[in-house]
Write a protein that binds this DNA or RNA. Sequence first.
RNA 1: GCCGACAUAGCUCAGCGGUAGAGCAGCUGUUUCGUAAACAGCAGGUCCUCAGUUCGAAUCUGAGUGUCGGCUCCA
Length: 648
Amino acid sequence: MRLERPAPRSQRRVEPREDFDLSSCRTGGRSIRREARQAMADQAQHEEEILEAPARGSAEELLDAGAHDPIDAMRHSAAHVMAEAVLDLFPGAKLGIGPAIADGFYYDFELPRPLTPDDLESIEERMRQSVAADHRFVRREIPLDDARVVAEGQAQTYKVEILADLAERAAAAGETPPVTSFYEHGPFSDLCKGPHVESTGRIGPFKLLSVAGAYWRGDEKRPMLQRIYGTVWATREELDRYLWRRAEAKKRDHRRLGVQLDLFSFHDISPGSAFWHPRGQRIWRTLESAMRELQERRGYEEISTPILVHKKLWQQSGHWDLYGDNMFRLESEGQEYSLKPMNCPESAVVYRSRLRSYRDLPLRYNEYGRLHRNERSGTLSGLTRVRQFIQDDAHLFVRPDQLAAEIEALLGEVSEAYSWFGLEPRFAFATKPDKALGDPMLWERAEGLIRDALDRTGVNYVVKSKDGTFYAPKIDIYIDDALGREWQMATIQVDLVMLPERFDLTYIDEHGAEQRPIAIHRAIYGSLERFIGILVEHFAGAFPLWVAPVQAVVIPIADRHLEAAGALAAVLRSRGLRVEVDDSDGRMQNKIRVAQEQKVPYMIVLGDREIEARTASPRTRAGEQQPPEGWDDLAARLAAETSARRPD
RNA sequence: GCCGACAUAGCUCAGCGGUAGAGCAGCUGUUUCGUAAACAGCAGGUCCUCAGUUCGAAUCUGAGUGUCGGCUCCA
């Protein structure tokens, strides 16, 4: 029924890994980096400028080189200039790769010592000189074998490796070794397929941002290089806007706001696990009860299963082998147990607890299970990457003929839930990967059903070929937050193999024969921790009324108004509103300021005038002064706004 | 896990070999006040932990713990 709007929902991105699909897991940090991608909306104008300064080479070459966005050529050129500067300051430095990325570029180096912030300044200074010199970028084509000699001569071992790979790849494809290209500007020359801008003078305003370690080719068994990140834009205004956006993102950081709004805290006695304070817990419960309401309305039944589970279960599910490193294990009386990292195997246990009839399906089990995953210490990050969390998890067991309707309903649930927050979901349909389990016919059928459901609901989606999990095709849901950062929120996975086969799930059909059900894994918020973290940043702490931990503060002007303030608060609370009275000794102005800083949606000042008329005129946190209304009317109005779950 | 940086009062931060500081918050008192900060006083710290160097360590060294920025958008 809520299929009218583009579907929403996302299953927690963590969940997919749950099913071993580690690759699909996007970390928060990565998403944040993508954030900037959005900034490009208004770039048309500088694109023209760049086009006026075409990269060397024909349009075809540019296309071959995959130059989708002209500004990438400038960013990549900036990377070359940075490499020039680094080589100048550190002769003998070895170069890794230096691509253009979302809002800038990076280059990886092997250097004799760690870089410091001061080094970044020196490098920037050298870069400016190179830009001022306006060196032309010159493309030089060199046969691969010659290129290897050059790279070896320069002791550029990483470039040598890249060339060796190119040769190997060509050999594997039965082709002759390709001609490689070098780009030179001034004293600098680098193996590079291009394209570049015409000359270094075409590089716009830039800034080096940070240094970080990065494994060569992302492989932790390879050497760790030093990566310098930089950003570059066509105009000063764009650079400033980007830097402003970074600063804004920092201000909205949920780790900062979590302290400021007293929502949660982290402590080294349990790294990666949040301590929820009363106000944070109120948000939690609000989201949870909204979801429970939706689930009950849509025929879910809630279950609850143990956190501490014998390893036998994980061996059967396959987690013990495939996910073991991520599980917390413990031993008791000679038996080995684990804290559950996922709910799904135990929901299968519940399913199997009795014989199921085709009449029982679909079965929709939802569970707010507390999960533990032993994430590597270096990856922990606020609420977005934790070791303990709770999902709004559910597992649906359906007959094949019910799958389409269930998926359609799930898309509707996603749409509905995301509309509560004003989030616009985007969908990606991930199909069968090369390495997949189960009957190809079932895959084909499942994919067809997913596609039908997506098409029927009229949502827009992209297809990510071969991006499904090894046991299931899936629908991934993404959102862009208020700063344009992309987050993968969830996944709807159609599991044909893992729960049904491994746990030998069956139901008895109308002919008395055993059949396999299909399992759907889904979570709409995903990890509540992560979801709340994203909400904090999306709303910058100014939650919609229905979510706000404190919805209204009653502000008595003087002590003699305290009693009436309590009475008004009682009226509001009787309608289920979360209301506090500021009975501190401060002045009214100060109380407003405090409420404002706490991002409380409504501030209700109570003085002689209001008390006499038994009215109240709320001030919104946007600074709007609303007309006076009676206490009961106000309470009814705010209660109605709350239950509407509007996103503003 | 790995590379780098950081860890001082509840919060934000200064101090960087010689007796621990500020603002805000807190507490007490005064003030009773009309839409983003009343005034005064008081209190508050194993300077992350453990070793080491030193006459002396918040400050230097080492180890540990935690946090932050990252760890292929493949020439």
